[in-house]
Simulated scan of single mutants.
Amino acid sequence: MEFDDRDRKILALLQSDCRISNADLADRVGMSASACWRRVRAFEEAGIIERYGAVLNPERLGLEFEAIVLIQLTRHDPDKLSELVRVIGQRPEVLSCYATTGQSDYHMHVLFPDIATYNSFLETVLFRMPAVASAQTNVVLRKIKRTEVISPATPHDRALG
């Protein structure tokens, strides 16, 4: 799908404030309200907009232990991997998890109230998974950048790649 400047602006505004009214959104991008609504609806139907939500402050919710966990597998047994993926997918403490190349097989971003709760998760969940050989914990000391904002590439950006 090709994006023009208005499309990029609509998507940027919705990512910064998904509660913006359609009338305000249309006004800020210089479109009629009905045309803007149709464009947003098209983004939703195409799966470009997956969902809407709020960004929460973990510390204010008492979630002060954040880490990136590098998981190495015992071996790539499909049944054991399926179980690992299922369990990780159900854990609310796991914010994201990626199968990766390199030394680690998975990179998992986790958030817990404290280190004791995290240690309990390691002992009662992660280390009991037959697929897991080891896990290296990298504690987050400071956030440098935290965003999920995505900017659609312009034709010029693609030409640079």
Rank of each mutant, 00 (worst) to 15 (best):
L73E: 05
A135K: 02
F112Y: 14
K145S: 10
G62N: 06
R38L: 13
K80W: 12
E2W: 00
R146D: 15
S82Y: 00
S151T: 15
S34F: 00
F112S: 06
V140S: 04
Q103I: 09
L70K: 02
S16Y: 01
M1K: 10
N22G: 12
Q90S: 15
Y106W: 11
Q72L: 05
T101Y: 01
R41M: 12
R19E: 15
L111G: 03
P113V: 07
V55S: 12
L160H: 11
A153H: 09
K9H: 12
I49N: 06
D114E: 12
E83Y: 00
E45D: 15
L11C: 08
A35W: 02
D27K: 13
A42F: 01
L63M: 12
L95E: 14
P152C: 04
L63I: 07
L122A: 05
W37Y: 09
H109N: 13
E64M: 03
D27T: 04
T100L: 02
A23V: 09
D105N: 11
T137A: 03
D105R: 02
S21R: 11
R86L: 06
D4C: 05
R41H: 14
L81K: 07
L95D: 05
D4Y: 01
A12W: 01
A23E: 11
T124E: 15
D27H: 08
H76T: 09
N22H: 08
T74R: 14
P155S: 09
G102V: 12
R75C: 06
Q136M: 09
K9M: 14
R38S: 13
A46P: 04
I150K: 08
K145W: 03
T124V: 06
W37F: 06
G53C: 11
V40N: 07
H156W: 11
G53E: 13
A135G: 07
P113D: 09
G102T: 10
S134E: 14
T117P: 00
A54R: 15
Q72C: 07
E93A: 13
A42R: 15
L84M: 15
L111S: 06
M129N: 09
S151C: 03
D27N: 11
V40A: 07
D114Y: 06
K145A: 10
M31G: 02
L13D: 06
R38D: 14
V149I: 14
D105S: 08
L160S: 12
I144T: 10
P78R: 11
E50R: 13
R51I: 04
V85M: 10
P78V: 10
R8Y: 01
D105H: 08
D27G: 03
Q103G: 09
T124F: 02
F3Q: 04
V139E: 12
L160Q: 14
F127W: 12
D114K: 02
N57A: 11
Q136Y: 01
Q90N: 14
A23G: 04
P78W: 03
H109P: 01
L13N: 05
D79Q: 11
H76I: 02
D77S: 13
C97Q: 12
M108V: 15
M129L: 15
V125H: 02
A33G: 08
S21E: 10
S32K: 07
P78Q: 13
D27V: 01
I115F: 04
L81C: 09
L14Y: 03
V110D: 02
S104D: 12
G161A: 14
R39A: 05
A33I: 07
R128N: 13
S34W: 00
E66D: 10
T117N: 08
T74W: 01
A26R: 00
F112D: 08
F112H: 13
